[in-house]
């Protein structure tokens, strides 16, 4: 790959965004951030992203859930892999590592809990990106 993969973080906590942005940039990714769902959606539509890192609890409630649903309705954005990073786990249900957030709540590719181990984050991001590459190659 000649150009770096471009990732978008949508999270309303700037401290958290800084923390994971540094991990990802350190690994050579190009990273943009949006601090609310509206800016995040604008960003997604303004340029192609290879992966979205999405927070669930933003603003007045679980706006991240609405965000992911809205994305899944868009033919182009549907293809973007979504990694949820949330502090929400205990509230929705007692979920276990590696399980989707909630099968009926939102279709996402992977879930990590805040705070996230840098190594684990990098592994998940790499895995989602290569799975997405393979899907594209198969579809092309």
């Amino acid at each position: 790959m000649s150009t770096a993969k471009r990732l978008l973080i949508v999270d309303d906590d700037p401290d958290f965004v800084d923390g994971i942005r540094a991990i990802l940039e350190g690994a050579g990714y190009a990273v943009d951030a949006a601090f609310n769902p509206r800016d995040g959606f604008d960003a997604l539509q303004s340029r192609p992203y290879d992966l979205l890192l999405l927070d669930i609890l933003m603003g007045r409630g679980a706006e991240g859930v609405m965000f992911a649903r809205k994305m899944r309705k868009d033919a182009r954005l549907r293809e973007v892999p979504v990694l949820i990073i949330t502090g929400l786990r205990e509230q929705i249900a007692f979920l276990f590592p590696g399980e989707p957030l909630h099968p009926h709540l939102v279709p996402v590719d992977e879930l990590l809990e805040k705070p996230v181990e840098p190594q684990l984050l990098l592994e998940k991001v790499a895995a989602l990106l290569s799975a997405s590459e393979r899907r594209k190659a198969a579809g092309a």
Binding site: D15, F16, D18, G19, G26, K114, P115, V116, P118, Q119
Partner: peptide
């Protein structure tokens, strides 16, 4: 609890992890 207590602590922890990593 989640937003007012957990979120700031998580952010602190995230930065500690980042420091350890860096």
């Amino acid at each position: 609890v989640s937003h007012e207590l957990k979120a700031p602590l998580s952010a602190v922890q995230q930065h500690l992890m980042l420091l350890t990593h860096e």
